[in-house]
Write a protein that binds this DNA or RNA. Structure first.
Lengths: 376, 376
DNA sequence: ATGAAAGCGCTAACAT
DNA sequence: ATGTTAGCGCTTTCAT
């Protein structure tokens, strides 16, 4: 329920200056109003203390008597004081420096897009004293990733977001980095157990379950075999998706036989012959779940076989290729994670850590489902 | 592709201070580094002009000679100067005031939630000099809505977001408001043609098409009748959804017969008997598309009939009720729009207008699809 | 066309 | 435990 305001009819109460201060549009460029805000000066005066003391109370710093604290608090409430975030940020001349460590993205549109989003965020946040750098490492190469992680020092960088492969040495490198006081979040794919603050990405078990559910329902009771194609099970996210997929398939669609997973290394050229082989080998193949990149290989193999209308396909990540496949009817649904959201959430989480906010929980990245009809 | 940085090995170049300024963690609370930024002072010195002139150039103000402009620009580039958004905001003591006009939300969880999100945004943005007020009007009552809109003055409020019914008088009231210099965005449901800046909401035609596609595919070739339930076709969004739904149904699933739409006024109590009636009247009813609120009425009618497993149901908005129905299997999919995103986009659009940014295009709100397996 | 100077509201040394 | 003071980097009069 919207409660009526306490000053009579809603409409007339609209936008009235709560403090009753003088104001006016004179001199205000564009459509913003110049105002005299309630400041800590006002609070200080009301409470009969100095600015410094008000600051101490507002920021929960030590060294203020209980009595003073409550006087200041009362003044704050009474005057309806709200701190000005701009002034506060200006006064503390701090800068946040974060690093994004991503696999080299030559052949993989999802990673290329993620990298683009990191760049975009770096540009947007430059005027907010957040400096973001990117460092690449060789895809799937944990030694190279470790080299990069080991080279990061807390003096240079207070937070790292990394799209990591899930191997013991990487886990170790992350833990060491955290030990050096650097905040780490894993991005897209997790490394566990590790001391990272969080994994910023979709719930991949859920994603796998959704894929199973959609394939099963779209098949409407038809029986047959289902192929599962991953990039690599060294990637935690792919492993998770497969897990969720198998779980739901087993429980809800026992008439469908899941074939052993094949790994295409997120590479279309490598994936295509593998899928072509499966199609040839299994005339009763009725569905494919593609949980990694390399969709182009799947599309090509399917369309070459002429069976694209008979095989229900659910893939991951909306890219130029998957989009075209969706429109053509070769793909039936695409499960997507919005890279921009992931970057934003990662920055937020790293910043919260750097600012010492305990218990900050970044929002979960949503699992987007696209069919032909809701393409953006 | 991630390009290697221009200072040798990526890792050692990480987070190096680009201006070569002195810095260090001494005195820096938490994990942020105190820095001496490149300021307009530096730019002024480099260009041999005063601060005021640099400011004029940076903000494209008039009264600077072309020669000076280019000298300043050169200095900016050379020093890699980035304006500090915090300092800029502090210096211009401006405040943005916006108004959200929503229908009274007593019975409708979606609107109640939207209202909650507006409140939350108001709280979050209070320290950023954005003041948001809410004003309710009687649901579906265009006279009351007009009364509210007519009472808004540009002096008090520079932007309005409104969840409107699409009637001629409302259109007129919006146009008048815009004529008075107030920026207006429609929220969730559009009013066209009107002079509003934008409609912040999902693409409802798409949403309708998705619903049709899902119902059709989930039915897997079964024939029968489909019921369509709207809140009211006076709501542009419901009308749009119906349009998209019918379009896709006609084109892709001709074996399904769409029954004439019924209007439940977004009210469960009113909707329930209507749906119960349809179920009784049409033993071959195989699907329901609920495009408005009042889902509880549909759920109750269905579960009372015992046919909830045989009828494929797609509804809108994830609420406590629809969520439960999804888990129980009574609903098969829920199409959702994230209220928080809509509020955020609305504020951005209104702010861009108030700041005189021409051609700002707010991002489209995504259409979320939920099935049992990706519930958040 | 350009410059000097006074803030914006808060924080953080340094005093007391 | 509390106060004084000097900025943070930009914008904005008001002069010239």
């Amino acid at each position: 329920m919207i409660r009526a305001t306490d000053r009579g009819p809603a409409v007339t109460a609209v936008c009235r200056d709560p403090a009753g201060n003088a104001r006016g549009r004179a001199g205000a460029a564009e459509g913003a109003v110049r105002v005299r805000r309630v400041t800590i000066r006002d609070v200080a005066a009301e409470a009969g203390v100095s600015l410094a003391t008000v600051d101490r109370v507002l920021n929960d710093r030590k060294g203020v008597s209980a009595a003073t604290i409550s006087r200041v608090r009362a003044a704050v409430d009474h005057l309806d004081f709200r701190r000005d975030a701009f002034a506060a940020s200006l006064a503390t001349s701090r800068e946040h420096r974060f690093l994004f460590v991503l696999p080299e993205s030559g052949r993989n549109s999802f990673m290329a897009n993620l990298d683009r989003e990191v760049q975009a965020a770096a540009g947007r946040l430059a005027d907010q004293r957040i400096r973001i750098r990117r460092v690449p490492y060789h895809e799937f190469n944990d030694a190279d990733l470790c080299r990069v992680l080991d080279g990061i020092s807390a003096e240079e960088c207070m937070g790292v977001a990394v799209v990591a492969v899930d191997t013991p040495s990487v886990r170790e490198a992350i833990n060491t980095l955290v030990g050096r006081g650097v905040g780490v979040v894993t991005l897209v794919s997790d490394v566990t157990p590790s001391r990272r603050l969080d994994c910023i990405g979709i719930n991949n078990m859920s994603a796998g379950r959704v894929a199973a559910s959609l394939i099963g329902r779209f098949l409407g009771g038809r029986a047959g075999k289902i192929a599962t194609v991953a990039g690599s099970l060294v990637l935690f996210d792919h492993a998770d998706r497969l897990h969720g997929f198998n779980q739901t398939m087993a429980r809800e669609f026992p008439q469908l036989l899941i074939l052993p997973v094949i790994e295409g290394r997120d590479d279309s050229a490598a994936t295509r012959p593998l899928v072509a082989g499966l199609l040839a080998q299994h005339p009763d193949l009725v569905g494919i779940y593609s949980m990694g990149a390399g969709n182009r290989g799947i599309i090509e193999a399917l369309e070459a076989s002429g069976r694209q209308r008979d095989v229900v396909v659910v893939a991951h990540e909306l890219t130029a290729h998957s989009r075209r496949a969706l429109i053509a009817g070769t793909f039936d649904a695409v499960i997507h994670q919005e890279a921009a959201d992931e970057v934003e959430n990662a920055v937020r989480a790293l910043k919260a850590f750097a600012d010492g906010q305990v218990g900050y929980v970044p929002p979960r990245v949503r699992i987007d489902i696209f069919v032909r009809d809701n393409l953006p």
